[in-house]
Simulated assay, not measured.
Amino acid sequence: MPKTCFILNPAAGPSRRLDLPGLIARHFGALEADYEIRLTQFAGHAVELARQAAADGFRVVVAVGGDGTVNEVGRGLLGTDAALGIVPQGSGNGLARHLHVPLALPAALRRLARPSFSRMDVGVLNGHPFFCTAGLGFDAHVSRHFAEAGSRGVSTYLRVTLREYRRYRPVAVRADLNGQVLETDCYVLAFANASQYGNNAYIAPRADLRDGLLDVCLIDALPLGRALRVSLGMALGNLPQTRAAEYFQVPRGSVVARAPLGFHVDGDYLGDATEFAVELLPLALAVAV
């Protein structure tokens, strides 16, 4: 069994209502495993804890939390020999779902006790690494307001999405996708390393974590009829077949927006900008799955 460090975000999802350290001790302690649990104390702390855990010789460093915690732990492990593990405890759990990590805590821990090791690609948008998805436009706008909503969960996300759908307007952009230049309006421009945002909302169902390419989803406008097709296509995992969105596969790209445009990585809103650069780092992160 690999030496394992659990980095736990006590504020993520159901974590606030569970004795996660006790449950981890019950499962890993019974196996006489070599493990530690380290708790995050502030935003960005998991990056530091993951980097230190790798330096301390842990073979597997486990993000116990949501997509934000996974992103921080993954960032801390870039350039190290340690592998990322996931115990999903967030609202969306996008990367965990793509990797088929069990959502039930006991099953996720059993899987980590005897993991298989692999490697995955890593995306970078304006210098910010992402492991699942990143994007410009409406999804970033929703991420911003979801973070300000005061509550988490699917119902809150849907409520925020419906409210902001009535308010949001697309922005004109010039996108260079590995040499293919597009002059278009941008309602959503999503860069997908994994197939979904989370909660089985598949923005790029053909995305592959190990193919060296980003799946780019462009939606230039979202009138009501198309919005219904997009929503249904994401839920059923067949959005490309609906022709409600345009897709590209590229290793890198750049975007210039006519007005400031919000962007996010792994669901965390990072601000507005008018110039964006995105690239993929092939097989840059080890994972324990």
Rank of each mutant, 00 (worst) to 15 (best):
R229Q: 13
C217H: 00
D211I: 14
L236K: 08
A221L: 07
L214V: 13
L182Y: 07
A204F: 01
A244I: 08
P223A: 04
C186A: 13
R206A: 15
V230N: 02
G225Q: 14
V216W: 02
T242P: 05
Q241S: 15
L236V: 02
A207Q: 09
D215M: 04
R226K: 08
C217L: 04
A227R: 09
M234N: 03
L214I: 13
A192S: 14
T184G: 08
L239N: 01
G212M: 07
S195E: 15
L236W: 02
P240G: 07
S195C: 14
N193E: 10
R243S: 10
L214C: 09
D185K: 13
A244Y: 05
Q196S: 14
A207E: 06
A207R: 04
C186R: 12
L232Q: 10
L213C: 06
L213M: 09
L214F: 08
D220V: 00
L236R: 09
R243H: 15
C186Q: 12
D220P: 05
A194P: 00
T184I: 05
A221Y: 06
E183Y: 07
Q196K: 14
G198Q: 06
D220N: 11
A194Q: 03
A192G: 13
L218D: 01
L239D: 01
A235Y: 15
Y197K: 02
N200L: 07
L228D: 08
M234D: 01
Q241Y: 09
C217N: 01
A194M: 03
G225N: 15
D220L: 03
G237P: 06
Y202Q: 05
I219S: 01
A194N: 04
I219P: 00
L182S: 13
A194D: 05
R206W: 11
D208T: 03
D215E: 11
G212C: 07
A244N: 04
L239G: 02
A221N: 11
P240Y: 07
L214Q: 09
L228H: 10
A207N: 10
A192R: 05
L182H: 14
A221Q: 12
L214M: 11
C217G: 00
L213R: 09
G198F: 04
A235P: 13
M234E: 01
Q196R: 14
S231C: 14
L232R: 12
L239A: 04
A244E: 05
S231E: 09
G233W: 00
C217I: 01
L228I: 15
